[in-house]
Design a protein around this nucleic acid. Structure first.
Lengths: 130, 130
DNA sequence: CCTTTACTACGAAATATTTCGTAGTAAAAA
DNA sequence: TTTTTACTACGAAATATTTCGTAGTAAAGG
């Protein structure tokens, strides 16, 4: 059963960057997250800290004490969150047409032959299943 | 040539709703746009007016006087804007993998057999072209 | 012991976005 | 002619988001 709207508030862009890191690297400290973000962005340590504290309040992250620092874990699932954001995006930007989005995504992005094959596989499955 | 980043500032969600209407219905007055939005959202007329004035300042819309009211026209192209937003979205939500996005979009959205065929066509073309 | 280092907590400033109220005005209606 | 209606302009409040500085504190180093 999909879980639309009701659950945790939709993450902002900054929050998504943090979630993204946690999904990839698993439970991490603010320091670890920050050092990663700092490679790309310009932002102070306490900014990242504050964001993660807020995300904790919002129930987007859980945390445990580990010595004098906290270890944060994503409390929302990657696939689920992506789906929610994708739904919103298809709605607002592609007027609800997932097919349109797919066409534009494939048309303009350089996608490898291997990935194209996987997609073709998926298409076949979908068509068979219905 | 794609036009990345440099051009008009990325539209906010509210702005996108307005652009969306203009793309679909062509040049329109604030009244027309507002009456449409009001079906869905709760918002006063002057809110829509102000937004469109701001979009005009930002060069997202152009306008001409038509009697005592203004007729606004989208100054940015739908396809171009979609591409920009799509790129951002793939980056932030799918870590740059368009293929992942496509799979998730097809997997969960009910897409008609006809649309699936169109996508298959596109896949064939892509594969042939390289 | 002191001092430095590496944390958290938290208020509050800086920005960005959205919303609305008020004023001015020209045309339409009475 | 007076009143009502339907616009625009625009300041400013309300929200949401992001950023940072300062304070407190425990451990590590000297």
């Amino acid at each position: 059963m999909a879980n639309h709207s009701s659950f945790p508030p939709k993450p902002t862009d900054s929050e998504l960057e943090i979630l993204s890191f946690l999904w990839q690297h698993g439970p991490s400290t603010v320091r670890q997250v920050h050092d990663h973000l700092a490679e790309t962005k310009e932002a102070g340590y306490t900014t990242t800290l504050k964001l993660m504290q807020i995300m904790h309040e919002k129930e987007l992250l859980s945390r445990t004490e580990e010595g004098r620092s906290h270890v944060y874990t994503a409390k929302v699932q990657e696939a689920e969150t992506r789906q929610t954001l994708l739904d919103r995006f298809v709605e607002t930007t592609f007027r609800g047409s997932a097919a349109q989005l797919v066409m534009q995504a494939l048309g303009n992005h350089k996608t490898s032959a291997r990935e194209l094959d996987e997609i073709r596989q998926l298409l076949n499955n979908l068509e068979n299943n219905h």
